[in-house]
């Protein structure tokens, strides 16, 4: 017997034994031979999973997602500005970069935004995934979550997550219409539009941080020191 078979057999026996002890007559697991029993249990489990039942949602799930998102971004130390259209994004990013200490005009970013007029804003936008030495990364997101000020990124050819991870500053362009209330809503949207989670499903809530030395919070551990959201109407 393989380790797999041994582990599964032990679990099966333990479950049956406890059911016998508790004198449960049939329940989810009829007391048949082990193989049949597991088959029945497996079918039942698949039915449970297919329901995608939601747990109890906090009251704030009913708040306006956009307002909640703005408030929660502040809590997790994501800065945020709002612009009227995608065309206004480069100027806003140039302004934002002017406010941080080591002013940068080189960006790496997702292809989605490569066509914007970065040059007029005085910025050099390189359409490629980030490498270790890049200082500013520009990404979009699949959606954002009001409940916790969270950005949900789904990794794919044109949406590499590394760009949100390696640079010291991560700028995320978020369309207002893509802000949902809860993580459950975000997963539902993903099922509707993509189906299954891609290899990398990535939730970002603020700049990277650590409290590993004397429980003192330090912003900027291994990932970005700054996360800035540009909200597009």
């Amino acid at each position: 017997m393989s380790a797999r078979d041994n582990i599964l057999a032990r679990i099966g026996l333990q479950i049956l034994r406890s059911q016998t002890q508790a004198n449960i007559k049939s329940g989810n697991r009829p007391n048949a031979s082990l193989g049949d029993d597991l088959g029945v249990a497996h079918r039942a489990v698949r039915e449970v999973i297919a329901k995608h039942e939601r747990g109890p949602l906090p009251g704030f799930a009913k708040h306006d997602p956009v307002e909640h998102f703005v408030a929660e971004c502040e809590r997790v130390k994501t800065t945020l500005t709002e612009v009227a259209s995608l065309a206004a994004v480069p100027i806003e990013i140039a302004r934002y970069l002017g406010t941080i200490a080591d002013t940068q005009n080189k960006l790496v970013g997702w292809p989605e935004f490569a066509d914007q007029d970065w040059l007029s804003a005085g910025l050099d936008y390189q359409n490629r995934p980030a490498i270790g030495s890049d200082l500013v990364g520009v990404t979009g997101c699949f959606c954002a979550i009001g409940e916790t000020g969270t950005l949900m990124l789904l990794g794919a050819r044109d949406t590499p997550k590394i760009t949100a991870l390696l640079p010291e500053t991560h700028i995320c362009i978020v369309k207002k219409s893509r802000i949902v209330a809860t993580m459950e809503d975000a997963f539902q949207l993903m099922r509707e539009e993509i189906g299954e989670p891609p290899r990398a499903t990535f939730f970002v809530s603020g700049p990277s941080r650590t409290a590993d030395i004397e429980q003192t919070i330090v912003i900027g551990a291994h990932g970005p020191y700054r996360v800035h959201v540009v909200l597009v109407r």
Partner: peptide, 19 residues
């Protein structure tokens, strides 16, 4: 209220993925 990074990994890279 939430940890900074929730990292869900499902399977291997797609043929056209860069990471």
């Amino acid at each position: 209220t939430i940890s900074n990074y929730l990292t869900l990994t499902t399977g291997i890279k797609a043929p056209d993925e860069q990471e």
